[in-house]
Nucleic acid binder design. Structure first.
Lengths: 249, 249
DNA sequence: ATAAATAATTATCATATGATATTTTTTTAT
DNA sequence: ATAAAAAAATATCATATGATAATTATTTAT
């Protein structure tokens, strides 16, 4: 399918700035109170709506009309801003990597640096708890990011257009780091299969409590995960870490 | 939308009997070597293909044509046998409840009976390991059932037509039973929120290793979960159980 | 203030999808 | 062997979907 590239002009307005909510995601029409050119807001509104929708129902079952309606724009806007459904999905990936990795990168870097400098078991346990806490914070508490977590989790379960990028930049490094810390906590120099299984199970365990996962909420009798949920989940993980600490090996 | 109910005639041929594979799911055309009337085989073939497809891509993103092709039948066969896409989805639920609950029901009943008869901590630990082992067996090892696990997991994450039935008959009782055993292992008479969180995390942990979840396979460097994978996952869970045993409380 | 550029909207298209009607083939009953 | 019933296949329909073209509104630059 050939394309006259000319209409691709509007594809990348400038990004990154606050975006108040209105039509769920978009302000009233043609009002740019903020002084910014309108397009950037619209772009963000579409992105947020898309991340939520794709995360909930997946690429195939989500229609561009649904996203447009949720974002408060018309359906062709998606083509105008992102070149199509595919382009929008990839743009969601970039957005998530920017906003998701951000809060985690700091603590991950710190843990990694500490690990390379040589950690004792106790120190590794503390770093691991830091990491899991940051993860739970981002996945369970922050509403906006927990929607992103839904997107990421889905893509990891059923690989699609975003799989490669998310796996390489988020999932694999995250598991690797956790596994490495776990190995150190257990008193071994480098990671084995058991550590990786532990890492996967811990992170999957947190993922089971992102607010979108309504089953867990229902089982627990919670309306939303919130602080209490996060604390409880982390306590369980801490207990597991303590268990590794106390065993000799 | 009105329906002339007459064409519903063929909706429920007799069920339950072995089904050899061919066109992935269906035998060569018009051959009923087995002596059974052909329709039951076709029905099963469609069901198996549907469970796999729905489990992988979900209700909305799975087309009846895809299912028909995988089953080796033509597209209208789905309407003929199940009255439509909805009916097929519900039929998948019934099929799963029959074939999934089956292998688990026995060990679950046993655990439940033991729990009510009064278990000591050690006994509860053994029962819990039994239960988790059976679960891992069914979810990780058995190919056919692990496809069903994909279906169930998806439905729990994004409730649809099958949610109610699967939640009530599978998920909730499973978590409740596990939580109860966990409480006993910890030395308490009845379950609290922490036990339920532990139960959810354990079962989610197993679910992370069903063969469909290719990320985990990739991280572990496995081609398929198989026996080794199941054993490793169970070892990790056992370690956790041992941790609870050794703590006083 | 006006023209050019950008953003948003409406109208429409080709294709895919679930469903249905119709026809053909196979099986079963007599 | 033949007729009736059941199963399978083909053809087709109405609707939904992603995409595009054409039009209108708004903003920006002069």
């Amino acid at each position: 399918m050939l394309r006259n590239t000319s209409w691709h002009r509007g594809i990348r307005p400038n990004e990154d700035f606050p975006m108040p909510a209105k039509n769920r995601y978009k302000q009233a029409q043609w009002r740019s109170d903020s002084g910014y050119s309108k397009s950037a807001e619209t772009r963000k509104a579409i992105l947020r709506a898309a991340i939520e929708a794709f995360g909930k129902t997946g690429y195939g079952a989500t229609t561009t009309r649904q996203i447009a309606a949720a974002a408060g724009v018309n359906q062709p806007a998606i083509n105008y801003y992102f070149g199509g459904k595919d382009g929008l999905y990839k743009a969601c990936t970039d957005e998530i990597l920017a906003n998701f990795v951000g809060p985690l990168a700091e603590v991950a870097q710190q843990a990694l640096a500490a690990a390379e400098a040589g950690l004792d078991r106790k120190g590794a346990a503390r770093q691991l708890q830091e990491l899991l806490s940051a993860l739970a914070d981002v996945m369970i508490r922050s509403e906006q990011v927990s929607e992103a977590a839904g997107f990421v989790g889905r893509e990891m379960r059923e690989p699609g257009l975003a799989y490669q990028a998310l796996y390489q930049n988020l999932w694999a490094p995250g598991i690797e780091l956790a596994a490495r810390l776990i190995a150190t906590v257990k008193g071994r120099p480098d990671t084995d299969a058991a550590d990786r299984v532990d890492a996967i199970m811990m992170i999957s365990g947190i993922a089971a409590f992102v607010p979108g996962q309504s089953v867990s909420m229902r089982i627990m009798g919670w309306q939303e995960a919130g602080d209490a949920g996060k604390a409880l989940v982390l306590t369980r993980l801490s207990a597991q870490i303590d268990g590794w600490m106390s065993s000799p090996k």
